[in-house]
Design a protein around this nucleic acid. Structure first.
Lengths: 328, 328
DNA sequence: GTGAAAGCGCTAACAC
DNA sequence: GTGTTAGCGCTTTCAC
């Protein structure tokens, strides 16, 4: 049974108000402060955060709701968010939705029950366009994905531009029959596909794209079909790290050489993409900046709810490696 | 300003106690229950979890304190823990200590202030031997690392046995001059080294081992020195995924062929280890089982504080790949 | 500066 | 079954 502020007050011979002031930053004489601090030592007192939150009406907690923490993009973003949050004396509640709208709804409700100060959220496409994201009772910052202006802040990658960079690079290297696989559950997959298609059109090239579940096995199946077909593409673009892994496995398993049999490029500079041979050409996202920026936007929004919603867009960085070496 | 249980009661024309009973599992007539549920709908009521926790003295929260969520072992364990926790209606607070004892102490204090129901904890070597881990005010289950019996439950890998499996396999394949790098901050690194040394001794072989920071760059430097030296080992064992990555990079960067120039094996079946060429021989840990078992031990401990501390030890699984192909 | 007292939103006795 | 009431541990007026 933990000791309460009352026992500390008794031990120090002061009122609970004085103890509370020592804990916070109220005005307390040096003499009493010393006595209270001593009493805290002796009793081993630990403030009860639930009580503090209830009374002060400040939860000092932010929510972080993503699809899957095992996705390296979210792993890194979560570290950035958590570091910044704990630094500021806030707690983080992390939830994984697995791209499941029901889980999303459940966790949004949980965020309300926790009375979170704010939420950093990577929604599915369905939820991204919800009009009530700004009426949850706390500010929301979207990361990675955002629908048409829903009136909330967002931190995003310039997906269309990044896709175009990949396409331009591939065309430059002599590839023409380029296929693309994209995640079907997020606006991000959609944007990357649109950017891909637009860039291909600019080059006067036809393109073939597929929307699939954003998981490695789905990509392996999907790319496998392409590789086995008579009119195999000569290059493939994968819209995230998981899909890239699946595509890589499909090629590897069939003994299709990279880039001789098929060139391969994608999103997310996961550690393994550099270390396989050949290395994979990828778009690197500034994951730490994205996490930190999301926190900053949240903090600014908390300071001033009035400012109109901002969208911060980061450029991707093209890392050229052996998997897209020139065709000739 | 969120609505409280009071307003729901007024809307439904009942007492707050009845509303509370509908929320929980108290006995309420169907008629009143329906009215209350309707009132909850109308008002958009969300229970305040801080108030509930304060009053009920049950935080319904468990802590998960690990060194770094970006370490794939902990990423996977955390998913297992979180899934099990949310399933049971509990919240999870995740903290990263970066192998820093000061941060560990700070987060242990935070866990007390949160009045967590229980804690799943991967301590550094310094903290693992603290005698007061069972006096924090809540049960602790150690994962991945544990000191000499500290009187708390633990879920571990059979590190000595796993190291021996690697050594036996390498010796079997014809390697004799085998070096090992091990994490210096954890008991796990220590145990794996001891198991390694013991197995080498059984084979009558001398061994050279290094304790280093459990991070890829440190491993790259360390292994680089070996590879550049005149008496280069013919095989290297790395005691976790990060160290394995660093070792792999060191070999790759110097153009040292695997396994011709040096054989390489290690711990943690991270995705990339299968996908590089040659694939890397590794000890796979049952990460999901470890996470789930930690939760089970915690739940059982909460049900009965009396049972004496248990240590659940899982075997590792040796996955043989090209990086340790036979020497001749 | 300091203390007394009210009350944050909820659950759990306790009466009926 | 239902309502009344007393706190959970803390912060925050409000007096002094």
């Amino acid at each position: 049974m933990p000791v309460s502020i009352k026992e500390v007050a008794r031990e120090a011979g002061v009122s609970v108000a004085t103890v509370s002031r020592v804990l916070g930053k109220g005005p307390v004489s040096d003499a009493l402060r010393a006595r209270v601090e001593r009493a805290i030592e002796i009793t081993g007192y630990r403030p009860n955060l639930s009580a503090r939150r209830l009374r002060s009406r400040r939860s000092q907690t932010i929510g972080l709701v993503v699809s899957d923490i095992r996705n390296s993009f979210f792993t890194s973003v979560s570290r950035a968010v958590e570091d910044a949050a704990y630094e500021a004396g806030w707690r983080v509640i992390l939830c994984n939705t697995d791209e499941n709208p029901d889980k999303e709804a459940m966790y949004l409700r949980l965020m309300q029950e926790e009375r979170v100060t704010g939420l950093i959220f990577a929604p599915t496409r369905d939820t991204a366009s919800r009009q009530d994201l700004d009426a949850l009772g706390f500010p929301v910052v979207l990361i990675d994905r955002a629908g048409p202006a829903t009136g909330v802040d967002a931190v995003l990658l310039d997906n269309a531009r990044a896709s175009a960079m990949l396409v331009d690079h591939l065309v430059d290297a002599g590839y023409r029959r380029i296929g693309g696989i994209f995640g079907k559950t997020s606006t991000t997959g959609q944007e990357r596909r649109d950017g891909f298609a637009a860039a291909m059109a600019l080059h006067g090239l036809p393109c073939e794209t597929k929307f699939i579940l954003p998981q490695a096995p789905a990509a392996e199946d999907s790319v496998g079909v392409w590789l086995d077909s008579a009119d195999r593409p000569d290059a493939i673009v994968a819209s995230n790290g998981q899909l890239l892994l699946g595509a890589f496995r499909a090629a590897r398993r069939r003994g299709v050489a990279l880039p001789g049999g098929v060139a391969l490029a994608g999103f997310d500079n996961e550690g393994w993409t550099e270390v396989v041979s050949p290395g994979l050409t990828v778009i690197e996202q500034p994951v730490l900046d994205i996490g930190r920026t999301a926190m900053s936007l949240l903090v600014e929004r908390l300071a001033d709810a009035g400012i109109s919603p901002r969208k911060v867009v980061f450029p991707g960085r093209l890392l050229i490696r052996g998997s897209t070496a020139g065709k000739r």
